[in-house]
């Protein structure tokens, strides 16, 4: 495949898969929610500005809302996660900082870095999404429980997906 289109495909393919397939997946009574489109946001290049990440996340979430009757829920959660991406990136940065060629994948940054970043960001996303979706104080604990289990499940699926689809470049 043409290398020029690979980054776009890597970001858009998860969204397409979420819309046509993963939105139908209901596992363990909703305790394992899989937001596959979030992989596209997580795979945005590390060098992208915070503003770009926010706008891209908003677009991604809004597309899902339009196609899956989310009514703004996915957009709000994606934007909330997008705000934290630069912060988490700084938090997990190697001592010497990121190199210009670094990509937020297992093959470039290693599985520990990827899983820690994915877990943190997915947890932030899911807590926001499930809390808003619950809409009542007495459902918050249940929502946070679902957010935690779903974040662990989704991070595992993302790691597995990358391990199966990407060639190993180098590990830091």
């Amino acid at each position: 495949m043409n290398a020029r289109f690979a980054p776009y495909l890597r970001v858009l393919l998860p969204l397409i898969l979420q819309v046509v397939f993963f939105q139908y997946v209901t596992l363990v009574e909703g305790w394992w929610y899989l937001g596959f489109h979030l992989l596209g946001i997580l795979l945005l290049p590390l060098q992208r500005s915070g503003l770009f990440v926010l706008l891209f996340s908003a677009g991604m979430g809004a597309t899902l809302d339009f196609t899956c009757h989310g009514g703004g829920l996915f957009m709000s959660s994606a934007v909330f996660m997008g705000l934290f991406i630069p912060i988490v990136n700084r938090l997990l940065a190697p001592r010497e900082g990121y190199e210009i060629t670094d990509q937020p994948t297992i093959s470039y940054m290693g599985s520990r870095w990827f899983i820690a970043r994915a877990l943190l960001l997915l947890f932030i996303h899911n807590v926001w999404m499930f809390s808003i979706e619950a809409g009542r104080w007495d459902l918050l604990l249940l929502a946070w429980g679902k957010a935690t289990t779903s974040a662990v499940f989704t991070a595992a699926v993302f790691a597995l997906t990358l391990l199966l689809t990407q060639r190993k470049v180098r590990s830091r």
Binding site: L55, G61, M75, S76
Partner: peptide, 15 residues
């Protein structure tokens, strides 16, 4: 931008 996008999304959600 974050607050503007959130206002848009949450407004959409509430409505």
């Amino acid at each position: 931008v974050f607050f503007a996008l959130q206002a848009l999304a949450l407004g959409w959600f509430v409505s």
